[in-house]
């Protein structure tokens, strides 16, 4: 198959999947996989290609989710308007935040972003008058009972994100991003305005994550600060999806999201182990870092070689 056809083939398979008579539960899983793929791809743009490892993507997810939620809660508008609006809100937010955190490098950037997510969680918890605090926001009427419509919406978002990231990475900007990742000082000395390109990567990545947040509000119908600003269940899972799938690869986030969502659901179904999915994730994370540092897609050759040797 010719290379440019693979994404189209995958899209076609994903588009006809709902017609194969999947149960509502399976549709739910698929929607989650697609949502996490989108978040993973947007993280990958910033973390994988531009080298800025963010531990705070829950901040953008949460701001997007709350944009949609507050639109409904305060203005009685449809929460679906939150999707276009969240792009604007999250972009501005990420731009301002980026001004502070992008001055930092490596682990310090990582922790500053981690802190930003936590600050937002605590602020939304305490700011009762505006965000309804820990009670959260409940969307009282669901737009659709069936999952199919939601599925196509998130599929469109995912496809758009895939295209956008692919175009960006193949463009001149993409090379600038990689240059910043490989050696920021060298990139700077070659005349690349590193702050500018880091900000671009951050804002695009944040806006895409924010769209997912707004979608989440519409799909789940309930948000609270603990869910949407979760450190482990959003920020860290995002990193794990990309690490498991493959850093700086096109298909890594899809593979990673599929594995992580299925793994989480599988662990949840084992009685008595419900709360312990994080222990498994932790072990998986350690194993991946030790043995497949570039993820399943990134180290695919290594895996096939390993299996080839075992057979021989």
């Amino acid at each position: 198959m010719k290379k440019p056809l693979i994404p189209l083939a995958v899209l076609a398979v994903l588009a006809v999947l709902p017609f194969s008579g999947l149960s509502t539960y399976m549709m739910h899983i698929l929607i989650l996989v697609l949502m996490w793929t989108t978040i993973g791809m947007s993280w990958n743009l910033l973390g994988g290609y531009c080298g800025q490892v963010s531990f705070g993507h829950a901040a953008y997810f949460g701001v997007g989710a709350y944009t949609a939620g507050l639109l409904y809660f305060k203005l009685q508008a449809s929460a679906w308007w939150g999707i276009p609006l969240s792009v604007a809100v999250v972009s501005v937010f990420a731009f301002v935040l980026g001004y502070i955190v992008l001055k930092l490098r490596g682990p310090f950037f990582a922790l500053a972003t981690l802190a930003s997510g936590e600050v937002l969680r605590i602020t939304t918890e305490n700011w009762n008058g505006f965000t309804n605090g820990t009670l959260g926001i409940l969307i009282q009427e669901r737009t659709w009972v069936a999952k199919t419509q939601y599925y196509y919406i998130i599929l469109a978002i995912t496809a758009f994100t895939f295209l956008l990231v692919r175009r960006l990475v193949a463009s001149k900007w993409g090379y600038y991003f990689v240059a910043v990742r490989e050696d920021q000082d060298a990139a700077e000395s070659l005349g690349i305005d590193t702050t500018k390109y880091k900000t671009i990567a951050l804002v695009v990545s944040a806006a895409l994550t924010g769209i997912c947040g707004a979608f989440y509000t519409n799909y789940m119908g309930f948000i609270d600060p603990h869910i949407v600003f979760a450190l482990h269940d959003i920020s860290i899972i995002t990193i794990m999806i990309v690490m498991v799938g493959g850093v700086a690869t096109q298909w890594g986030p899809l593979v990673g999201a599929g594995i992580m969502v299925l793994l989480a659901e599988w662990i949840r179904s084992i009685p008595g182990l419900g709360a312990s999915h994080q222990a498994f994730f932790g072990v998986l994370l350690v194993l991946i870092i030790l043995f497949l540092p570039n993820g399943i897609v990134g180290d695919f050759r290594k895996i096939t070689r390993l299996f080839g040797r075992a057979r021989a």
Partner: peptide
Amino acid sequence: SILPENQVILTVGV
């Protein structure tokens, strides 16, 4: 690996 932050992410796992 591509990302130098692997050690930090490892401590997250721990």
